[in-house]
Design a protein around this nucleic acid. Structure first.
Length: 208
DNA sequence: AGGACGATATTCT
DNA sequence: GAATATCGTCCTG
């Protein structure tokens, strides 16, 4: 087993900081885009109410329960795709959401795909943006990013320092300080702005 | 710089 | 039927 896959077979919260500074290469007929990861979030099903895999296997999350080093993609909010690197041994639903990064190769291609962003730092700042900028699609779900053909993860030397805190957009117990599983490189401009989960809408009744 | 809001489909209750 | 691991645009300050 490769060194990368051995590292990835630990629980997501342990692996997540090791992905900071790592390179993700995505190649298609248009070319190659590479991001240097600056922000990630860990989701560890066995203990984590915020994880898609907390309530067991479903059609959507089944690759989270597969072997480590594969890509878990999902579609959300009716329009966005997000990507995770699967962690932990087969049978345990664990993964790391790729939330932000710096484009270090294929800048022109990333700019063309993300025409709405006015600054390069915004190209892959946020999980759905990162997916668009790199060219990852829903169809990449399940691919092995360690063996790496179209999508390849290249681990680098761990960063000297990182910050951690509560996850973005996670509501309920999973969003509390009990799960400070968002990790980022402090001060980096490609880290997405922290947003607490939207408060659950209170049931307002019209008085008749 | 930051808050409100709408878009829009899949998933799970 | 409700919520969602979000984003861009439009406001206000």
């Amino acid at each position: 087993m490769s060194l990368s896959r051995t590292l990835l077979s630990a629980p997501a919260p342990e692996v997540a900081p090791l992905l900071l500074g790592a390179l993700l290469h995505v190649t298609d007929h248009e070319g190659t885009v590479t991001v240097r990861l600056t922000e990630v979030e860990a989701y560890h099903g066995p203990v984590d109410p915020g994880s898609h895999s907390y309530r067991g296997r479903t059609e959507r999350n089944r690759v989270m329960f597969g072997p480590p080093g594969h890509l878990y993609t999902y579609f959300t909010y009716g329009m966005h795709t997000c990507a995770n690197v699967v962690c932990s041994p087969e049978g345990i639903g664990s993964g790391i959401l790729l939330r932000g990064g710096e484009i270090v190769e294929g800048l022109d291609l990333a700019r063309a795909r993300r025409a709405t962003s006015r600054v390069d730092a915004d190209l892959a700042r946020g999980p759905a943006r990162l997916v668009v900028a790199t060219g990852i699609t829903l169809g990449d779900g399940g691919v092995d990013v360690v063996a790496g053909s179209r999508v390849r993860l290249e681990l680098r030397e761990p960063v000297a320092a990182f910050s951690q805190g509560p996850r973005t957009g996670v509501s309920g117990p999973g969003g509390s300080d009990e799960f400070p599983w968002r990790f980022w490189i402090p001060g980096d401009p490609t880290v997405s702005p922290y947003k607490a989960a939207a408060v659950k809408k209170v049931n307002v009744r019209e008085t008749p």
